[in-house]
Structure formats: C-alpha cells, structure tokens
C-alpha cells in the first residue's frame, strides 16, 4: 500500500509505503544489488558488467508514477491522495567498497553533471513540484545497502522543511530587499570562526544556528536557485569543495563519517523562487567519535533541537582536519 495521508495538525503530507518493509537489507557483499552484473553471477539491479554512473527507478519506491489509488478512503479531515512521484537510485561507482569520499575529482564532477541532468529532467515533469537529491551514508543513518549510492525523490508537493525555508526567505526578502542566504554567507564570512573550507564559488560552514554538532552547509557564493545556473567553473569548484568536506569528515577521527547529505534547491512547480538560494546540507549523526546525537523527545516530540556543542568549536575542528582550503585548491590542480 502506498498513499499520501494528510497530517491535519502539522499540515503536511505523510508518505505511507508499506512495501518498503520488504526491501533488501544489508545483503552480503557478493550479493550487492547495486554492483554490475558479472557473467555467470547473480543478476543485480544493473544488467551491464560495468558502468560509470547509473541511475534507475527504485525497486521499492516511496513515490511512483503512475501511483496506485489510495487503499483507504479519505475524509474532509483525513485527506488522502496517490503517492505520485518518482524515486531514483544513483549509483556513484561500480566499485562496491569505499564511499563517495573515494571518488576522484573527475568522478565527482561527473556526478554533478548527472545530478544536474536528473534535476532538470525530473523537475520538468508536470506532476513534480520538488526534486530532492540526497545521500544517506553509513549504518548509523540506517542505510540498507552499503554500495556507494545516493537517491533522488521527485515529489508531487513541496516538502515541509523546504516550504518553511521558502517562507523565511520570502519574509526576509520582503523586509530587507536582500536574500536571506546571501546575508548568512556574508555574516559567516565576516565572522570567519565557523567557516570550514571555501573556494572561488562555494563556502562550507557550520552555521551559527547549527542543530547537529558537525552540521555543514555548503552555499554557492553567487545567488543561484538551482544547479541549473552553474557554469563550468562552479561545477568544478563544487566537486572540489564536496571532496574537501568529505575528506575532512573522514579525517576528523580517522573513520568513515556517516551523514545525511541533502541538496536544497528551488521547487520545480513553475513558480518564481528568485529569493531562494542553492545549498547542500550535511547532517552527520555523531556528536563525538563514539556517541550519536539522537533525535529524542525534545527534537522529535517538540521539533526543538538541542545542540550539545557550539558551532565555533566544531568548525575549528573540521577546519583543522585535512585538507585545508589551500590544500583543497591544490587538489583541484593535481587530480
């Protein structure tokens, strides 16, 4: 069963997708469904014996097109609608081991082209209002497949967190005439204590208002609403800063850092969101190497986050982890 159920208290859609209970869960390495299919071996999701980057429709989608009719009857209070949309898997590499951190700059740059392509194509569908590109990495996040991959959800509505960001940005623009996110970037650059790494086109920071200890935001310096506005230089610089942030995470404790990486872009519903600003958010669940930050009673129950750390100190830790901004610039020239 799959449908959208309206939450009348929070005024947001909840996706039900009961078939996902049966999805593949941490299979042995030699039965990975995201590896290429080798001759004589079991058939994976990808029929070719090799690939560079591949995307495909999720076998266990939360949203699908065409969507089945809701299995329950709605009411005025309890609205239901089909869970119409598209869920894609993006396999970053045919190599089973490793993570996105291990991607070369060239591979990262290629991935940025793929993300841009999928954003444009999925966003152009008339039933899609929002395209969310994201990656859940690590068992601490709850990944069910360890092969390096990300996901794309193309929603038939604007997800609530994005909607809230849009409303904040519009209010700020109306009040000041300026972009909320550009003002955040300016204030962070002026202060400098929370900057993690930067290059010509992007700035990575743990912002003043971070809710997770090592929560990094990557902002484009120029005011873009989506990746579609990026030129060649910005795409190359995005590859470098992503690689730098991922390396810093892994070098922080010498471990492969789990995270949720979420790309925030303007909706694709055809309206003008000129006041919005492209950025990527990283939400690693660890507050120390050994301890996780749980979304417990206050966060889950009240929506109010408690950060046990301060951004200035955590940003300094990440800034000190290799590579530095200078080393990241060097990375770009030698890869």
């Amino acid at each position: 069963m799959s449908e959208l159920r309206w939450h009348p208290i929070l005024e947001e859609w909840v996706i039900t997708a009961t078939h996902r209970q049966d999805r593949t869960f941490l299979p042995p390495d030699d039965y990975c469904p995201l590896c290429p299919t080798q001759p004589g071996a079991f058939p994976t999701e990808i029929p070719s014996p090799d690939y560079e980057i591949v995307t495909f429709e999720n076998k266990f989608p939360s949203l699908q097109h065409p969507a089945p009719e809701p299995a329950v009857e709605g009411s005025e209070l309890y609205k239901v609608r089909p869970a119409d949309g598209i869920c894609e898997v993006v396999c970053y590499t045919p190599r089973h081991g490793g993570t996105l951190t291990d991607a070369s700059l060239e591979e990262m740059r290629n991935l940025i082209d793929v993300w841009t392509d999928r954003f444009q194509e999925l966003g152009s569908r008339d039933f899609i209002d929002y395209v969310l590109i994201f990656e859940n990495k690590g068992k601490d996040i709850g990944v069910t497949l360890t092969h390096p991959h990300g996901q794309i959800y193309a929603f038939p509505f604007i997800p609530p967190k994005i909607q809230r960001e849009l409303e904040s940005a519009l209010k700020h623009q109306t009040r000041t005439g300026r972009c909320l996110f550009c003002d955040i970037i300016s204030e962070e650059l002026a202060d400098a204590r929370r900057i993690v790494v930067e290059n010509d086109s992007f700035v990575a920071m743990i912002p003043f208002f971070a809710r997770f200890p090592y929560e990094v935001y990557v902002f484009s310096r120029d005011h873009h609403q989506t990746m579609l506005g990026f030129g060649e230089k910005e795409r190359a610089d995005l590859a470098v800063i992503l690689k730098a942030v991922l390396l810093k995470y892994d070098n922080l404790w010498g471990t492969s850092q789990p995270y949720m990486m979420i790309m925030h872009q303007a909706p694709t519903d055809g309206r003008d969101y000129g006041y919005y600003h492209y950025h990527i958010e990283f939400h690693p669940p660890h507050r120390t190497q050994q301890k996780l930050k749980y979304l417990a009673g206050c966060e889950t129950g009240a929506g109010s986050y408690i950060n046990d750390t301060i951004a200035e100190e955590k940003a300094a830790e990440l800034r000190a982890a290799a590579p530095s901004t200078q080393e990241s610039t060097f990375l770009a020239t030698v890869d």
Binding site: E45, I46, P47, S48, Y51, E52, I53, V54, T55, F56, E57, K59, N110, D113, V114, D117
Partner: peptide
Amino acid sequence: KIKLEDGRYLIYFEF
C-alpha cells in the same frame, strides 16, 4: 536509457 524486465527504466551515464 533501457527498460528493465519489470518495466522500470535505468540510465547509464557515459563520459
């Protein structure tokens, strides 16, 4: 772009 046996699409990106 290819069609999988169960009707889903899959896209290979080549650089």
